[in-house]
Amino acid sequence: MSHRIVSKKQLSENVFTIEVEAPLVAQARRPGQFVIVGVNDDYGERIPLTIAGADVEKGTIRLIWQRVGKSTSEMADLKEGQSLGYVAGPLGKHTHIEKFGTVVCVGGGIGNAPLLPIARGMKEAGNSLISILGARTKELLILEDEFAALSDELIVVTDDGSYGRKALVTEPLAEICGRNRKPDLAVAIGPAIMMKFCCETTRKFNVPTQVSLNAIMVDGTGMCGGCRVEVGGQTKFVCVDGPEFDGHQVNFDMLMKRLNAYRTLEQKAHEAYKQHRCRIGLGK
């Protein structure tokens, strides 16, 4: 099965989006699920990415990712018309969507991508939708228009104040939770540290909070056990028990340490790849 890239856009310096052919995944996927993609079959890494959207008619899914290491750089170097080696999925449990009342969706950085289909699902289920989008700086903010079109209320914050309000996402989140009619559910997706502080914020107000965890994994189908996290004192596996969990139960400190497991090795591989790109004249 070919997984041709039918369109590609650069959303910010290191963030890319593609629509890629994967008709069976497009048909089966529901908000909150992810895929595992590979650039090539032999030596390539298996990269888990949350599905940002799908077009069943066209048989495509939308992926958004950040260039952080060698594999995500290789993906970013693919052009429209080229293909991914493979796309497996959809994986993980889908988001439980129903009419809760008011739902506040909090996205940080690249986390806005997996958040979008959930926000859309929540809105379509009849919830009142408040969205808080955060980024380090204006250039890194993605999907603002999409969220603006969906949300009853949209708050944009940047760490440096270059766009929207100068704040971390937890500030407006605390204000919203403190309103007379506090939200019935919060959904927070972004860097682990952001999700951790969102959960600490909502815990004070007793607002149930779902998070989507991006643990390191290999197979993604419940075999390798690499993606284990501690939730409520128990070992859970992100690929089959998640990726979404009750954020108030998640041991984020452990997750953050595990996410750093290969940092040094990955940096080395990335540096080598960047030099290789220069030599063969790819990119800038």
Binding site: V218, D219, G222, M223, C224, G225, G226, R228, V229, E230, T235, F237, V240, N251, M254, K257, R258, N260, A261
Partner: peptide, 26 residues
């Protein structure tokens, strides 16, 4: 085939550097 790896349920199994054999071998 095989499913989720069993762990020993001892303290420290979430530390970086602890693998299931499934993951290590894969």
């Amino acid at each position: 085939g095989a499913g989720l790896p069993a762990f020993m349920k001892i303290p420290g199994e979430h530390l970086v550097g602890v693998y299931s054999a499934n993951e290590y071998l894969t």
